[in-house]
């Protein structure tokens, strides 16, 4: 076989296989995407409701949000959604996403719900890549550590309380893994600060 024939054969079989897989991938995508999107919405709604911990609201939560631009306190790199829970059109709680960039490995994404008394209803870790079995106790799936935030606010806790016990604070930590909780505590505290400083944004 001449060189050209081999090249031609190679090009045609790669193109053919590429075409076959492009078609089958797009079919799979078309079929799975609605399910994936629906899963995401269901998952998000479930998560929001779990954080709100039985709080009474009557609006369509997943569709009532304001956009939060990247800022220094929340450390979000792209615009994120802050969800608003209302009852009879009165704001009951806000759910704000924040990022702790100073964890042990990569960004930790946190969602925090704050009620009308500026207290934390609850916080949850949305995404993290902390060391399994070491730093990942901040994750609600692994331990109850994150529930320590419940009920805390800037006014009912003194500044030093927002630290791990090792730094004379009130938060438990696991020996060998203090970077992770420090980052999370800082980020949650900054979320409260952000809410305090930008209240007019949420009360429109």
């Amino acid at each position: 076989m001449s060189e050209y024939k081999i090249i031609l054969k190679t090009i045609s079989i790669i193109s053919l296989l590429g075409l076959i897989f492009a078609v089958s991938l797009s079919i799979t995508f078309e079929k799975s995407n609605p399910l994936i999107e629906q899963n995401k919405i269901e998952f998000k709604t479930k998560l929001l409701n779990e954080i709100l911990d039985g709080l009474d609201y009557d609006n369509d939560l997943i569709n009532s949000f304001i956009s939060v631009k990247p800022n220094e306190l929340l450390k979000n790199k792209i615009e994120t959604k802050a969800f608003l829970a209302k009852k009879n059109n009165i704001l009951q709680a806000v759910l704000i996403e924040s990022i702790a960039p100073d964890g042990y490995s990569g960004d930790i994404t946190i969602l925090t719900a704050i009620n009308s008394n500026d207290e934390i209803i609850g916080s949850r870790i949305i995404d993290h890549r902390e060391t399994p079995g070491l730093g990942d106790y901040i994750d609600q799936k692994k331990s109850t550590w994150i529930f320590n935030f419940n009920g805390m606010s800037l006014s009912n806790r003194a500044d030093p309380d927002w630290r791990v016990k090792k730094d004379q604070g009130t938060f438990d930590y696991k020996a060998g893994a203090t970077i992770t909780p420090r980052a999370v505590i800082n980020s949650v505290k900054n979320t409260l600060l952000f809410y305090k400083e930008n209240k007019e944004l949420f009360n429109d």
């Binding site: 089958s24 991938l25 799979t28 995508f29 079929k31 799975s32 995407n33 399910l35 994936i36 899963n39």
Partner: peptide
């Protein structure tokens, strides 16, 4: 990729 999308769905 097909397996990945399917598990996700």
């Amino acid at each position: 990729t097909i397996v990945d999308l399917s598990i996700n769905a």
